[in-house]
Computed example of a mutant assay.
Amino acid sequence: MSSAAAGPAEPSPRTVVPMVETVLAFVNTRADGGGRQELFGDGQAFAAWLAERDEFGGEFGGETVATDADAAAARELRDALVTLLLAHSGDEGSLGESLRHAEQHLRRAGTLYPLATVVTAGGVELASPQAGVPRVFGTVLAAVTTFAQTGDWGRIKACRNPPCHFGFFDRTRNGSGLYCSTGCGSQVSMRNYRRRQRRGSDAPPEA
């Protein structure tokens, strides 16, 4: 469940709020070739991840039974979100057709996992009225929707260093962060440097 209670002062754009944590926890479940393992590989793995998340705050509604088909749907939703986060980082490979497909998938997800507006004296929040795995997906979409209304949706990004693509919250003052860590930024800089060196060595000698 993602809340947007009225009253308290708005958080700093450099503060990671619970909605951001929900989104990043969901997208940072993929294998990256650098040691992180796929956590949505099958229904059992997906259910184990959900159980672990619910130990921290019960955001997904308690124990959930998940099938292999549910895990596949989770991967599809996650990968669509990662494509959007890469677009936030200006990654060229995530633009064009890839971005259109991701946005279309998320529109379909919005119809499959609708949200309900919950109004109380303390504020207003979006929540999934469904149960089980649909509630999980709805909760992720509620977190995205609620945070996007703050105007800082573009600060949730995916690292431009392939194959990392780790989701992160850009805390820079002007929102210009492109990498999840200085290590990833250094790797990209070194690759670019070596590429320029190779191009220079391939150039024909001057007459």
Rank of each mutant, 00 (worst) to 15 (best):
S2H: 13
S3A: 13
G7Y: 04
A9Y: 03
E10Y: 01
E10F: 07
E10T: 11
P13L: 08
T15G: 00
T15D: 15
M19F: 00
M19S: 15
M19Y: 01
V23I: 15
L24A: 09
N28Q: 10
N28W: 05
T29K: 04
A31Q: 08
A31L: 09
D32Y: 02
G34Q: 14
Q37L: 11
Q37M: 06
E38D: 14
E38N: 03
F46A: 12
F46E: 06
F46G: 07
W49Q: 10
A51Y: 00
E52A: 15
F56V: 09
G57S: 03
G57P: 04
A69G: 02
A71S: 10
A74W: 08
E76D: 13
E76G: 00
L77M: 14
R78N: 04
R78M: 07
A80N: 05
L81Q: 05
V82Q: 01
V82P: 07
T83M: 05
L86D: 07
A87H: 09
S89M: 05
S89Y: 04
G96C: 05
E97Y: 05
L99N: 05
R100T: 14
E103G: 03
R107N: 06
R108H: 10
G110P: 10
G110W: 06
L115V: 09
L115M: 06
T117I: 15
T117Y: 00
T120P: 01
A121T: 06
L126F: 11
L126R: 13
L126W: 11
A127R: 13
A127C: 04
A127W: 04
P129L: 03
P129S: 09
Q130D: 14
A131Q: 14
G132W: 09
P134D: 11
R135A: 14
T139A: 11
V144C: 15
V144K: 03
V144E: 11
Q149S: 12
G151C: 12
K157Y: 04
R160D: 09
N161L: 00
N161D: 14
C164R: 03
G167N: 08
F169V: 09
F169T: 01
D170Y: 04
N174P: 01
S176M: 07
C184A: 09
G185Q: 11
Q187T: 12
V188W: 00
S189T: 14
R191N: 06
R191I: 02
Y193E: 01
R194G: 04
Q197V: 13
E206V: 13
